[in-house]
Design a protein around this nucleic acid. Sequence first.
DNA 1: CCTCCACTGGAACGAACGCTCTATCCAGAA
DNA 2: TTCTGGATAGAGCGTTCGTTCCAGTGGAGG
Lengths: 207, 207
Amino acid sequence: MKTPDAPDAPETPAKTTAAPVGTRERIVRATSRLLQRQGYEGTGIKQISREAGATLGSVYHFFPGGKQELAAEAIRHGDEEFAVLLRAGLGSSADLGEAIVACTTMLARELRASDWQDGCPISSTALETVGRAPGIEQAVAEAFANWRAVVVEHLVAAGIDGQDAGELAGTVISTLEGAELAAQIARSEEPLLVSGRHLARLLATYR
Amino acid sequence: MKTPDAPDAPETPAKTTAAPVGTRERIVRATSRLLQRQGYEGTGIKQISREAGATLGSVYHFFPGGKQELAAEAIRHGDEEFAVLLRAGLGSSADLGEAIVACTTMLARELRASDWQDGCPISSTALETVGRAPGIEQAVAEAFANWRAVVVEHLVAAGIDGQDAGELAGTVISTLEGAELAAQIARSEEPLLVSGRHLARLLATYR
DNA sequence: CCTCCACTGGAACGAACGCTCTATCCAGAA
DNA sequence: TTCTGGATAGAGCGTTCGTTCCAGTGGAGG
């Protein structure tokens, strides 16, 4: 009934817009979004295959490791997604404080646009699988380390000492995570925006 | 086989220690701990009744609203649990910075003692049920507001302006939440301890 | 042409899910 | 004693879970 893959133009996937997305990629994207909104246990493989426009056979063909392997891959997808946003926000201003505020502003806008549904892409799955799914735990740890590295880079470039930058980057990520959770719960941009200003103020004390 | 309620001394439940815990309370406590570790979808009613030493009939007798009502009650339990820790930490020192550091130190110690399992009692359930379980969402929102109020009280007592105190309290809670998540993921006390120092530094700029 | 194989499609399995239901127990009121 | 109703006990409902399995299907390589 439904033909997922575009039958035409298999050779020119880069049409700038609407590049036909392969089955594997569609499965990963659908999984990432569902994990973000429903968590690990709340998301079923059949729902994933339905939303991705793929069949159960395809899912297990590409991810023979089952749900865990699929979730780990989706975490890596969310990792890069969030890193892109982080780089965009931090790179938007030479002033460190303004850059941080830009990050929280972007996060707040996206959160509101999704009716407070799309928070951190991985935190829900991360919390559910602590100590019980090694593959997922590792992907989560790598994501946090990745985001931290992105922040460290900008802090060092802004002239903050390496040791301080490493510690501050951890706190920046932690606070963004917590503020995003608080914003989802309160259905308000305020926790994110306020935390952004506080982080800017904290960073300003390192001169 | 197993007699949950202590058959003797039904009139003097307050023996200072080892007060026999009623069936309803046992169910709530078991639910709270399981939700903390496994999240909402990952926790089954039958597992709850097993761990609580109660039967399915008892669970639905006390919580006719089913899983959602039970979870909301467990969230309220976790709310008070965390508030107690917060008050203990904040009250441990007249110096605001030291008090905040005391909070993170306590959280870090408890987290390590549970092999990084027992993080925030409600965050996992909160994330899973955003926008899909009104009763639970409300209990979660009340918990955050409650914790925030506890912090505000101490900030104001330390001489911080009311407006600032309200905003800072939100960031304090957010950062504690995020740092606890980071600590669980990294299996390390460091994110919590470092964030505690940074929060102390931030608060010190309000004088 | 045929062969091959990555990929698709979906039936079926046993287990677990949330919840309903009836039956039983037992302390205290009448 | 009989009656009442809170509390306990667990079988069983229909559904969904993650996973396995196998029969196609279609395009590239010989």
